Simulated assay, not measured.
Amino acid sequence: MTGQVVTGQVALVEDDYTLVVNRGTESGVVPGMIFAVRSGSGPVITDPESGRELGRLSREKLRVRVFDVQPLFARAHTFVDTNDFHGLLGLPFFDRPREDVVMVDVGDGVELVVAEQDRITGTGG
């Protein structure tokens, strides 16, 4: 990746396949960027020596591709990266079959995993 770090949170779950991220053009977000939606509510990790809390495990729930960007927010669809002709068209392919439902909540963290230029050149996450 190009070293660009963009993190934020889910600001709105618009429908079953669309969400709004609280970062937009003012944060460098452009259409085509791919974000991982992460759960921050995993188990607490405790240091066995000191008993000190080290943090929580964060698990990736799904990935979304930005298709609409405003100055302070971006809209993104869930998708499956097929790396084929359909992927070149940039069409959203829904990430999970209906029986494998992924719950996304307002406040879930998002992290840029592939910038648009990385997707075009084939580099990145």
Rank of each mutant, 00 (worst) to 15 (best):
S27P: 02
M33Q: 06
E60R: 14
R38W: 06
F93W: 11
V102Q: 10
G90M: 05
L89V: 06
F67S: 07
V104P: 04
V20C: 06
I120C: 03
D16H: 09
Y17E: 10
V110R: 06
D95H: 10
R96K: 13
G24W: 06
T121S: 14
L54C: 07
G3T: 08
F35G: 00
T46D: 08
V113S: 00
I45M: 13
K61E: 01
V104K: 00
M33E: 07
T18F: 06
T18G: 03
E116R: 14
R96A: 00
D84F: 07
V5Q: 15
T25F: 09
T25S: 15
G124V: 01
N22D: 15
M103F: 10
G55F: 11
V21T: 04
I120M: 11
V102C: 07
V113Y: 02
G24L: 03
R38I: 05
G124K: 07
G87H: 10
D81I: 00
G55D: 12
F35I: 01
V5L: 12
D15R: 07
T2F: 08
G40K: 12
V104N: 04
T2K: 13
A11F: 08
H77E: 09
V44E: 15
G40Y: 09
G28V: 05
T25N: 12
P31N: 12
R119D: 05
V21W: 02
R38P: 04
V10D: 00
D95T: 03
E53I: 13
D68H: 13
G107P: 00
S50Y: 08
N83M: 09
V106W: 11
F35A: 02
P48G: 04
L72R: 15
R38M: 12
V13Y: 04
E60V: 10
V30W: 09
T78S: 08
G40F: 08
T2M: 10
T78N: 09
V104E: 05
K61C: 04
P71S: 12
R119G: 03
L19H: 00
V106Q: 14
D105L: 07
D47E: 12
P43Q: 14
L112G: 04
R59E: 13
Q9V: 06
F73I: 07
R63A: 01
V13F: 05
V10T: 00
G90Q: 12
G51M: 02
S41A: 13
R98V: 01
P48M: 08
P97N: 09
E14D: 14
V80I: 12
R38D: 07
G24F: 00
V5M: 10
I45C: 08
T82C: 03
R119A: 09
V104D: 01
D118H: 03
I34Q: 02
S27H: 12
R52A: 11
F79Y: 09
R65G: 00
E116I: 02
